[in-house]
C-alpha cells in the first residue's frame, strides 16, 4: 500500500472517516505518521475549544475573585482552589464517573460520558481556573494611573472596563496565558488515558502512539513522532499568541513590549 493510499484511509480515521480497521501488522513509518497525525485532530479540538470557552469563564472568575462582594469572591476562590489544587487526571476520572451516575437519571447526559463533550467540559473548567488565577494577578497589577486617566476622561462602569481595564489586564497576563495555552494542549493527551473511552478506537495522538508501541514493542518510533507533532503544535500556539501579543501591545514603544517567554511553570 502506497503512502497516498494510507493518507486516504487513515488521515481522518480519528474522527470516524476512512478505513475502519487499524493496521494490525507490518506497520510502515507512513502509517504511524498518518495515524498519529490523525489523532492530533482531537488534541487540537480539545485544546482550541477549551481555550475559547475558558477565556470567557476565566475573565468572569478573575473579576469574581477581585470583587469586594464575598458572595462573588468566595465561589471564585473555591473554584480556583479546587481545580488548581487537584490533579487533572483525578478530575477526569471523577467527572467521568459523575457523568455515568447522571446518565442513569436522564438521557440528556448521554453525550457527557463520551470524550468529545465530557472531557471538553473538564478541560474547559480546568483551564478557566488556571487562566482565572493568571487574569486575577494581572487585574491587580493594572497601573493605577491608567484607571485614573479613564476616570478623568469620564469613563465609568462597562465602558471603563471594556476600553481600559480589560485590555490592560489581557496585555499584562498574555505571556503567562501563552504558557497556560501550551500546557493545556499538552494536557489534552491525558483524555483517553483517564476513563473516557476511545469509541471505535478513535483516539488522540498519544493514544495511537501507545497503540503502535504496544503492537511493535518498539517505543523509539511512535513517541518521537508524537514529540515531533507536539513541537509543531507548540510552535504554532506560540506564533498565534505572539501575533495577539503584538496587537495587544501595539501602542507601546518597541523596547517596552513584553516578550513572550515560554517557561514550564504551569502543568497539571
Amino acid at each position: 500500500m502506497s503512502c497516498t493510499e494510507t493518507i486516504q484511509d487513515y488521515a481522518l480515521r480519528s474522527i470516524g472517516f476512512g478505513e475502519r480497521l487499524l493496521p494490525r501488522s507490518d506497520f510502515t513509518l507512513c502509517e504511524q505518521f498518518v495515524l498519529i497525525g490523525s489523532g492530533l485532530i482531537w488534541n487540537v479540538y480539545f485544546g482550541a475549544f477549551a481555550l475559547i470557552f475558558g477565556f470567557f469563564l476565566a475573565t468572569a472568575v478573575a473579576l469574581g475573585k477581585a470583587s469586594p462582594n464575598a458572595a462573588l469572591r468566595k465561589p471564585a476562590e473555591w473554584f480556583i482552589f479546587v481545580f488548581r489544587g487537584s490533579p487533572l487526571f483525578i478530575q477526569f476520572f471523577l467527572a467521568y464517573f459523575f457523568f455515568i451516575q447522571l446518565k442513569a437519571l436522564s438521557s440528556f447526559f448521554d453525550p457527557f460520558t463520551s470524550a468529545w463533550l465530557g472531557a471538553l467540559v473538564v478541560l474547559f473548567l480546568n483551564t478557566s481556573a488556571y487562566a482565572g488565577e493568571i487574569f486575577y494577578g494581572a487585574l491587580r497589577s493594572v497601573p493605577k494611573g491608567d484607571l485614573e486617566a479613564a476616570d478623568a476622561y469620564g469613563l465609568s462602569g462597562w465602558t471603563k472596563f471594556r476600553r481600559v481595564t480589560w485590555p490592560t489586564m489581557l496585555r499584562l497576563a498574555w505571556p503567562s496565558y501563552t504558557n497556560e495555552a501550551i500546557f493545556l494542549f499538552h494536557a489534552t493527551t491525558l483524555v483517553f488515558f483517564a476513563g473516557f473511552p476511545a469509541f471505535q478506537q478513535r483516539g488522540d495522538a498519544l493514544y495511537y502512539a501507545q497503540y503502535f508501541a504496544d503492537k511493535t514493542f518498539n517505543p523509539f518510533i511512535p513517541y518521537p513522532i508524537v514529540a515531533f507533532y507536539f513541537i509543531l503544535l507548540t510552535l504554532s500556539v506560540i506564533a498565534v499568541f505572539g501575533t495577539i501579543n503584538r496587537r495587544l501591545n501595539r501602542h507601546l514603544v518597541a523596547v517596552d513590549r513584553p516578550k513572550l517567554r515560554v517557561r514550564p511553570n504551569l502543568l497539571r
Binding site: 499538552h186 493527551t189 508524537v226 513541537i231
Partner: peptide, 10 residues
C-alpha cells in the same frame, strides 16, 4: 516545553 510530559512517562 514542547513535548507533553505524559509522552515521556510512557
Amino acid at each position: 516545553r514542547g513535548i507533553p510530559d505524559i509522552a515521556f512517562f510512557l
